[in-house]
Lab assay of single mutants.
Amino acid sequence: MPVRRGHVAPQNTFLDTIIRKFEGQSRKFIIANARVENCAVIYCNDGFCELCGYSRAEVMQRPCTCDFLHGPRTQRRAAAQIAQALLGAEERKVEIAFYRKDGSCFLCLVDVVPVKNEDGAVIMFILNFEVVMEKDMVGSPAHDTNHRGPPTSWLAPGRAKTFRLKLPALLALTARESSVRSGGAGGAGAPGAVVVDVDLTPAAPSSESLALDEVTAMDNHVAGLGPAEERRALVGPGSPPRSAPGQLPSPRAHSLNPDASGSSCSLARTRSRESCASVRRASSADDIEAMRAGVLPPPPRHASTGAMHPLRSGLLNSTSDSDLVRYRTISKIPQITLNFVDLKGDPFLASPTSDREIIAPKIKERTHNVTEKVTQVLSLGADVLPEYKLQAPRIHRWTILHYSPFKAVWDWLILLLVIYTAVFTPYSAAFLLKETEEGPPATECGYACQPLAVVDLIVDIMFIVDILINFRTTYVNANEEVVSHPGRIAVHYFKGWFLIDMVAAIPFDLLI
């Protein structure tokens, strides 16, 4: 008679799926529990143990900040960024110097990925580790590398530091407007667009060049630039800015003055950032001319202004700041037409079709709590990747769950009947059967004279019903998954307890 339990259901295979997918890609990662103190490590794979030199037993239950890997060259700011990422709910990448158990130093890129439950609360953290440099290539500990984003994938490793954006290309926007319009339909740009040429040739750093990471940081200074100062900065030398009595002219307006920039070969870094931020506020060169004239017309309804409409929906549905990093990277690809469009465009503009998908598509409701890094690593669709929660398995109709209350009560009843059979069957065979043979035949009273025979008949009927119930009862397979398919249940029961239950259900007393 089957006594099969499996009270692990309803099970959740999400954690096993993450481990299996990460292991298949030869990654070095740990999984931490966000619900406990210090976000203790609950799993670390073999790749991480080989990377740091510690065994799994030495890593388990330690804080996922990996303070046991810190050393003299470990930056405090990087460690603080990892700790801050564990307090938030967004994906974050941090470069930090770690030390192995043998004392060797290596520069590592740590990717902190939160995993949320159905309520939107962070319950786990996945920390992925990628070695960037070994100890002989690690720089000085005073050099802070965590304020910069990861290198873009479309640049060669040897040319990542030679990417320079020439400031004269930004200063000569109005001069290039006529050349853009003359391109017409034969050019790649839309009317009114501004073409910015980027020099990728390796050259020595000069005062006129600005690194790509500095251009990325310009967006942080746009908020500090007032509207009046932006307007004066875009007017140009024809209309000098008016300053109040006793007030000095704005240095932001002076930063885009061609006369002032041409007199000296070098520009201050602050002026460069502010000038680029001011130019980015204009949607095209037409807006710059309109600002000089004193009238700013409404933005025209053409394809170039609607190019950012799908980007707005993608940004609203993005799951991490990696989408913004990807957008900034692609927006700086050289030799393309940049349409400086305000994100607050007309909502009635139709979304044009684009061959290049900048932001990841909208994630469906079932995966809105899973970050983009987890979705990318697992390579699963929205119909396959579940949320991290207890999910009731989908069972067929008329199927009994093996952990249901009805099955528990039924098993206790069958257990009592088995005990009765084990006690009274030998007793009936030894004593009652002998008395029946010696006594007179009682054929007239039937079952009324033999109450134990009636009980034995009921017990046999219950055993037959138990066999039928076992054909529709779920079970737990070797992978700790609840199986509810009727065919698989029948095959599993035939290979197991079916023969024993059938022999126990045969009414031998009635056959004798």
Rank of each mutant, 00 (worst) to 15 (best):
K166M: 05
T152W: 15
P72R: 05
T174M: 05
S278N: 08
N12G: 15
I82K: 01
N257R: 06
P141D: 15
R366G: 05
A382M: 03
T367F: 10
S351A: 08
F163P: 15
H302V: 11
P227G: 07
R92E: 15
G6T: 13
A89N: 14
N128L: 11
L256C: 15
L109T: 08
R20F: 05
L165T: 14
I19P: 01
Y99N: 01
E274S: 14
Q75Y: 04
V110T: 05
D342S: 12
L316Q: 14
L324G: 07
L256P: 08
T319A: 14
V341A: 15
D119S: 08
F106E: 01
V194P: 01
N317T: 08
S283A: 08
V94W: 01
L311T: 14
L107C: 06
A121N: 05
S354E: 09
M137W: 14
S272K: 12
P114K: 05
E23I: 01
P157Y: 01
L109G: 15
P347M: 09
I123S: 13
R273I: 12
V295W: 13
V138L: 14
S304Y: 11
D219C: 06
S313L: 07
Q75V: 05
G189L: 15
R5V: 09
I123T: 13
L248C: 15
Q25G: 07
I42T: 01
D102R: 01
P347F: 04
I42C: 02
E130A: 09
T270I: 08
L343W: 12
N146T: 12
L200F: 06
A277K: 14
G53Q: 06
C108H: 01
A282L: 12
R62H: 14
F14R: 11
G246V: 14
C276Q: 14
R366H: 07
Q61H: 09
L316C: 05
R242Q: 13
F163H: 13
V138Q: 14
F163W: 08
S275C: 12
I123Q: 10
G226S: 06
T270K: 04
P258T: 11
P237V: 13
D144L: 14
S322A: 09
R176D: 06
N317K: 03
A160V: 15
A204W: 11
H221C: 13
S104E: 14
V279Q: 09
P245F: 04
I123N: 15
G53S: 01
S304E: 09
S206L: 09
E274I: 05
D111P: 01
V3R: 07
K344N: 06
R4N: 14
P386M: 02
S354L: 05
G183D: 11
S322D: 14
D119V: 09
G53H: 01
V279N: 11
L69H: 01
S243Y: 15
H254C: 07
T201I: 04
T162Q: 08
E274N: 04
D197P: 05
A34D: 01
S153R: 09
A188P: 07
V8P: 07
A80E: 10
I96N: 02
T152I: 06
D321K: 09
R181Y: 06
A217E: 13
A78K: 05
R159Q: 09
P168G: 14
V132C: 15
I42E: 01
L343F: 13
R73P: 01
G189I: 15
P347E: 11
L248K: 03
V36E: 13
V94F: 01
P141H: 06
V377A: 05
A204H: 01
R62P: 01
L385E: 03
L86W: 01
K101I: 01
V3D: 14
H221D: 05
P240E: 12
V110R: 01
E130L: 03
D355M: 14
D136C: 08
N257Q: 04
R356F: 12
I358Q: 08
S320D: 15
R271F: 15
C44K: 01
A169L: 03
R273N: 07
D111G: 08
H147L: 11
F29L: 01
I333P: 15
R242E: 07
S266Q: 07
G88Q: 08
G187K: 04
S320W: 11
M291A: 15
A160E: 15
Q81D: 15
L155N: 15
K135R: 08
E23N: 06
A193E: 10
D321A: 14
G294R: 05
P352G: 07
G71P: 01
G246F: 07
V110K: 01
A217C: 15
V110Q: 01
D323P: 09
